[in-house]
Amino acid sequence: MKTSPAEIQLLEAKVAKFRQEHGLELGSPVDLEPLLKQLQVRTVFKPLDSSFSGMAMKYANKSYMLVNSDHSRGKQNFTIAHELYHLFIQHNFVPHASQAGRFGSQTDPEERNADWFAALLLMPASYIYVVASEAGEMEPRIQLTLPTVVKLEQDFQCSRQALLVRLENLRLITAAQKEEWAQSPAASARQFDYPTDLYRSTPQREAIGDYVALASRLFDKERLSETHYAGLLADFGVDIHSLGTETPD
């Protein structure tokens, strides 16, 4: 189901309020790791089933997040922003395994909201317009090029796929460009002399927060699929029966 323009405008207002409340400059890229520390979100990066991007939970007035380190760093960053919606914006949030970045194919409206919150937070339109204008790609008609797309994803530290969804929604690229430019993002970054760390998994990405002992136990266990997240809750010292449960999409 597609998110309506009115729904996106409402989410834009929520993003603006979130930025204001947490000292994030409007229209600028967000550095997520310092933000997670500021918000005291205890975050673990762990190899997981490919369809499981992450999850978040609140327990005893503390916030926790798990992110799939087998995904590219750009995808992980989108997942983090997606989970921030669940932790700080969504009312009556129930922990569940997420598949961030599906946008219109999400069956749960709150998952669609979380995807668009992430896109709006990580990829502010004003910054996109400034970069495109400086490249001379807004006048006399919109003509975004691949080098500008690569620069934007490097500045935003986001996934290529999420950026292309955002640009298409802003009507800055066509569906054909979206399909073409989704191919081989790392190769195009190398072509334009950008580093390729953004497109790689991060098996050694360090946990964030004050629970290193708990995090190390997670990394010692076998791979976790979306159907086994109850075990993750136990690793955080939480009895799943004390929480509501929700079936992932």
Rank of each mutant, 00 (worst) to 15 (best):
H91T: 10
A132C: 08
A176Y: 10
E25M: 13
P29C: 11
A187R: 15
T145V: 06
Q99Y: 10
S98N: 12
T202P: 02
H228Y: 11
E21Q: 14
S105R: 15
L32R: 06
D220A: 13
S28D: 07
R19S: 07
R42L: 06
A175G: 10
N92F: 09
V130H: 13
D210E: 15
V149I: 14
P195M: 05
L198R: 01
R160E: 07
D235S: 06
L48E: 01
N61K: 12
L146I: 11
F18S: 01
G101S: 11
V44E: 01
A125G: 00
H96M: 07
S4V: 03
A182F: 04
L87Q: 05
G74Y: 00
R73W: 05
I8T: 11
L26N: 10
T148W: 04
R141Y: 14
P195H: 09
A13V: 08
F103A: 01
L66S: 03
K37Q: 14
K17Q: 13
Q177E: 15
S242A: 13
L48A: 03
V150W: 02
Y59N: 07
R190Y: 08
G101I: 02
E7T: 11
L120N: 05
D31L: 11
Y129C: 04
A100H: 06
P140G: 09
S53R: 03
G54W: 01
W116L: 00
L233F: 15
H228R: 15
E222T: 14
V131P: 01
F156S: 02
Y59C: 03
A175Y: 10
I89R: 06
V30P: 01
Q191W: 08
T245D: 05
G136P: 06
L170Y: 13
L163Q: 06
L84K: 03
L163V: 11
D210K: 11
G104W: 14
E153L: 15
I208G: 02
S126T: 15
L233A: 07
D193M: 08
A13F: 07
L32S: 10
S63A: 13
I8Q: 09
T247W: 10
S50W: 08
S188M: 07
L170C: 04
E25C: 09
D210T: 12
A186L: 03
V44H: 00
G74D: 00
Q161D: 14
A135I: 00
T196C: 10
D220K: 12
F192V: 06
Q99W: 12
S63T: 08
A186T: 07
I208Y: 07
H96L: 03
Q204K: 12
K221Y: 09
R102C: 08
L152T: 00
K17N: 10
L172A: 05
K151V: 05
L243G: 09
